[in-house]
């Protein structure tokens, strides 16, 4: 009987109570599909990604798409104003979303956004970090872990080199950035739990 969709990948958190669970689900799917396609297009542009097996490309994307979207959409979370911008462009306050059922995940998203922003990374750095997020050799179901690991190491080396070049006096940024990876895993797990709860009673 859930009546609200607090994920900003919707046009609005409010759901028409007259609509069937199926049509709500269809609309939600239509809303986030373009963002998922963009992640796939991004993955295709990572040098070496297309050389991985088809199975592993799908496995990495299945496991990592949410984490990539979290990094890409930190701009939706206004840490200062405590608002979240939905796909329609309308902003909703944290308090409003909490009253609609948003819980710990929302707070954790704000924490993550705040910490990532504090690193003051440029577009190229964020992009390379996002590639590192996606190409993770410890995702489940990979058939050629060694290939993924080799690509992951190449990307991490490139990220370290870029950060060192751009922030010569702040090498700790690279370490802090890598420490964001387990934070993203944690967000991913929380999000998965929400999805499971939602799908059970659409």
């Amino acid at each position: 009987n859930r009546m609200h969709l607090v994920c900003p990948m919707n046009t609005s958190p409010y759901v028409d109570p007259q609509k069937s669970g199926h049509s709500i689900w269809e609309e939600f799917s239509m809303s986030f599909t373009p963002a998922v396609r963009e992640v796939v297009e991004f993955a295709k542009r990572i040098p070496g990604f297309k050389d991985l097996s088809q199975h592993d490309q799908v496995s990495l994307l299945k496991a990592g798409t949410f984490e990539v979207l979290v990094v890409r959409f930190t701009s939706l979370f206004d840490v200062k104003e405590r608002t979240v911008t939905f796909l329609s462009g309308r902003k909703y306050s944290v308090d409003a979303l909490r009253s609609l059922g948003a819980g710990d995940l929302l707070n954790s998203m704000f924490d993550f956004t705040e910490k990532l922003r504090a690193l003051n990374l440029g577009e190229e750095e964020i992009s390379l970090f996002t590639a590192v997020v996606l190409v993770s050799a410890d995702r489940s179901g990979l058939e050629n872990v060694n290939s993924v690991e080799a690509l992951q190491e190449t990307l991490i080396r490139a990220l370290r080199s870029l950060i060192t070049k751009n922030h010569p006096n702040e090498i700790a940024i690279f370490t802090k950035l890598l420490l964001k990876l387990p934070d993203l895993r944690s967000l991913n797990n929380m999000h998965s739990e929400q999805l499971l709860a939602f799908k059970v009673q659409p």
Partner: peptide, 27 residues
Amino acid sequence: FSDPASNLGLEDIIRKALMGNMEEKQE
């Protein structure tokens, strides 16, 4: 519904989006 990615139909979207790339690789 033990797999959230399957719940969302994510795999289907990903496979379709990758398809051009995959066809290219199969050639």
